[in-house]
């Protein structure tokens, strides 16, 4: 009976903690993220053996748009919609908490380089937990699968999870279309600043192609 009481109190505590601080905090793989953002799949050649000649404007890149995201480890499947930036230059997270947004100005699926960025709400005061509510629970090696508009499913493996204060955070390495091909998942975490209606941290998960 005493055990039951402890369990109930524990559940309440978990509910209270997770609703204001997001689920798991803690960080791993920051060095991996740095490496992925800076290492290019084909390093530039310093000598000049042959010079490419281009005719007219460069052809447009065929970026495959992700349409569906699944992370079995946290029981997540979500629709992916294209997302840009708002008037302040901030990422336009899809308003529906059940959908996540693919950064349409960055890399798409199947490209040899760059970060495919997907951002989604952790929660909403009215709608409740968002698609990425449990993003912070992911651990190294967890599988992420992304279906593209071409119908192809691409598999990724989690290599890093970071929880970093938004203040002063430079998103450039996470959004860069350069560096190794990778998938970067964004949500919010940490304390909720009620006055600013905003969380103080971003939770960022980085995954690399595993197939």
């Amino acid at each position: 009976m005493r055990r039951w009481a402890g369990l109930v109190v524990g559940m309440v505590l978990v509910a209270l903690i997770s609703s204001c601080a997001g689920p798991n905090s803690g960080t791993f793989g920051e060095d991996v993220v740095q490496g992925l953002a800076t290492t290019s799949p084909a390093p530039p050649v310093t000598t000049v053996p042959s010079v490419p000649v281009r005719q007219g404007p460069a052809p447009a890149r065929a970026a495959v748009q992700p349409v569906r995201l699944a992370i079995p480890a946290i029981g997540l499947t979500a629709r992916v919609v294209p997302a840009g930036v708002d008037g302040n230059g901030e990422f336009s997270v899809p308003p529906s908490v059940d959908e996540v947004g693919w950064y349409r100005f960055g890399a798409g699926l199947g490209e040899p380089a760059g970060s495919v960025v997907v951002g989604g709400h952790v929660d909403d005061a009215r709608s409740g937990p968002g698609a990425f509510y449990r993003l912070g629970d992911l651990v190294a090696g967890d599988q992420v699968s992304v279906v593209g508009e071409d119908g192809t499913t691409r598999a990724f493996r989690v290599v890093a999870k970071e929880q970093v204060p938004k203040k002063g955070l430079d998103l450039t390495p996470y959004f860069s279309a350069e560096g190794s091909a990778r998938l970067t998942l964004f949500t919010c975490g940490g304390q909720f600043d009620g006055a600013a209606r905003s969380y103080v941290d971003n939770v960022i998960v980085t995954a690399v192609p595993s197939g």
Binding site: N88, F132, T172, N202
Partner: peptide, 22 residues
Amino acid sequence: SGLAGAPTGMPAGRGPVSDGLG
């Protein structure tokens, strides 16, 4: 290419349920 500036922020949470009706 390679001149892309990143978004200035990632506002991916509009408050815990406990902050509203929840």
